[in-house]
Amino acid sequence: MGVLEVGWDQVFAWRAHRQFLTAPTAAGPVAIAERLAGLQAQVASAAETAAAVRGSDPQPEAVTAALTSGTLVKTWAMRGTLHAMTPEHAAAALSLIGSARTWEKPSWQKTFGATPDQISALVTAVSEILAEQVLTRDELVDAVLAEPGFAHLGAQLRSGWGAVLKPLAWQGALCHGPARGTKITFTAPANQIPGWTGLPDPDTAAPTLIAAYLGAYGPAKPDTFDAWLSRNNLRKTVVRRWFADLGDTLTEVSVDGTTGWIRAEHADDLAAATLDGAIHLLGPFDQYVLGPGTGDTALLPTEHRAKVSRAAGWISPLVLVDGRIAGTWEQVDTEIVVSTFDARPLPKRALAAAVERLAVATGAPGLTGRLA
């Protein structure tokens, strides 16, 4: 088929439906994480909220339970941040991110003090240490520092940001294990994930992750996919080849003159999608904005970006009106205080329905809402 021409209203209506916002699912957090190509889990409660607002029967700590069982895995993935992902999507994402070899760049070595050879040695050492056990960060670091050649990396290994540990995750040497009280743990993926088969070749992994991404956040360009995945650290020619190799499984789409791609199987649904006027309240670090990125001006006007993308990487809770980000909210005691970008009034019934949905999702009955 030729180029499909649609407007942003259709795109946002389609995304809201695909992301289980207009049609919450009973399938549970694993299906939700699969549809969204991962739940941002840098803040654990944010992942729980993201799953809960998309479920028709949300359960407390559902994401945590899936992580404990190994049906989801928590690891440093997209953009170097922690995500809860299905094992298949995690393996694909780690393969592609690792193929960028960011730890071999001089700027990375200068900042974090580890050479490529030392990272390679760390991969071997940590793989052996975690082969049959689960360790806290301190226990893992103590075991690593007992090996020769790593003493100067102690401070970096203990850092909460995990900069030196991330390349190990991207090469499949470790992932997060079940929490031990308030302490995080690490283990080998094979210990945590039933049937783990390791990381696929990047060319094998690319179709899996691109299809997952476009199935939630399309239409999108290769550069947008790479920005979501690696902050554009992959070679542009390689990413474009991955898209091209998908051939007829993708359809080219023009959205008010902006070209992108979507899975061909979704083209008819995108063309027919319509907005329903509903208001949705999403939690912090929600994939609805992280997928396309806070720089997407059709979704989030430039003049309001700083209200959503805040200091220290914080992403505010979102107010969606007709699929667009129209404001932010915060909880003050039992009240949801909504701040819209243009101070426009919101329909009282629609806002009350959104607050009730949030209350059910988060297990906080009695919430009320008001405009700031």
Rank of each mutant, 00 (worst) to 15 (best):
A163I: 09
L199P: 08
I210A: 08
H280V: 11
E132Y: 09
G293E: 02
G154R: 09
T274N: 11
L209E: 05
V321Q: 13
P365A: 02
G181E: 03
T249W: 00
E88T: 15
L346I: 06
D286W: 09
A143H: 11
A151C: 03
M85H: 01
T328N: 08
D223N: 15
V239G: 04
I97N: 04
G260E: 07
W76G: 09
A220Q: 03
I262R: 10
L21N: 07
V134Q: 10
P345C: 01
P222E: 01
W196Y: 07
Q109R: 15
P87R: 02
T64F: 06
V63D: 00
A350Q: 15
R240D: 11
D256P: 10
H83L: 01
N233K: 14
L153S: 04
S95F: 04
E356P: 11
H280W: 13
M1V: 14
E303A: 13
A267C: 05
Q10H: 12
A264K: 15
A354R: 09
P58K: 06
G313F: 01
A91D: 00
G177K: 13
L275E: 07
P207A: 11
S99V: 12
S107M: 12
L367H: 05
G38M: 00
Q133D: 02
A271G: 03
R310M: 05
R344E: 13
T362W: 03
P189M: 04
T25N: 06
H280E: 12
A143N: 04
S69W: 03
H176E: 00
A306C: 03
G363M: 02
G55M: 10
D9K: 11
R370P: 04
G291W: 05
A92V: 09
G70T: 06
A205N: 03
W8F: 10
F186M: 11
Q109T: 15
R263H: 12
P106L: 13
V11A: 01
E335K: 14
G313T: 02
G98E: 05
D269T: 12
G313R: 02
V319F: 01
A50P: 05
A163Y: 08
T111C: 08
A179F: 05
H83P: 00
V238Y: 06
E128W: 05
T115L: 13
V43M: 09
F243M: 10
F285G: 13
L72S: 00
T25P: 04
L153Y: 06
I315G: 02
D268K: 14
A271E: 12
F341A: 05
L153I: 08
R235D: 13
